[in-house]
Nucleic acid binder design. Structure first.
Lengths: 110, 110
DNA sequence: CGCGATCTATCCGCAATGGATATATCTGGG
DNA sequence: CCCAGATATATCCATTGCGGATAGATCGCG
């Protein structure tokens, strides 16, 4: 259906990287924390997504935050394009939420 | 990843039915209109989803709105359970939107 | 120095999506 | 009145996407 231009894993990864650069498993942990365990990214989806997202220009490899960081870790940063993509996706989700609210499916905003 | 308990097609169908009963293709048209063409439900997903949703109790078959309606059409109505499910899903999406807003990816609410 | 933990990466199986197709029925034009 | 195209439901199949299993390398700690 490709109802959203961004696949769910890609969206969550971009959201996790919006706070700052992270390495692969750090991203997975951040997503787990942000969603309180509701979203659990397996390693297959994680690394495949990172690779594709880098090729698409949504993220780029970044320098480690500390000079003495674990050299196995590969850090990624969100790009301007990635930021635009996740913003557009969030706006699209917001329209859905608004549609639900219009139909009395959610409490009114405070 | 099943980060959402409701599959995207199911969510959109429930949202479309929140306004009132519709038949299969009417649902597809309503979704197309609500999302401005961004979501295009193919017949495969549409009728399979309707069948499964009826079995799950999210929707039920309903009487046609007019007595002289096209007898080929099968109308569906959302159930109380379906209403709860779509509401929970919308609330989950809203948390994602809020996370994006917290990260300055969306304009502040008015 | 060895052993479990961490980290990246790839492969494989399964589920989900949606287009193609089939069948039946309605509607409008000649 | 009949035919053609549109509408509607339904199923089948190919493709895609996701996530677990597994592999291989390196780290940190006892």
């Amino acid at each position: 259906m490709q109802q959203r231009s961004l696949n769910p894993p890609v969206f969550h990864i971009l959201l996790a990287l919006a706070d700052g650069s992270l390495h692969g498993l750090g991203i997975a942990d951040r997503i787990d924390a942000l969603t309180r365990g509701a979203v659990d990214l397996g390693p297959g989806t994680l690394y495949r997504s990172l690779k594709e997202m880098a090729e698409m220009g949504l993220i780029r490899e970044a320098a480690p935050p500390d000079s003495d960081a674990d050299p196995r870790r590969k850090y990624y940063a969100i790009t301007a394009q990635g930021r635009r993509a996740v913003a557009a996706e969030a706006a699209s989700l917001e329209r859905l939420v608004q549609a639900a609210r219009d139909r009395k499916l959610l409490p009114e905003r405070a």
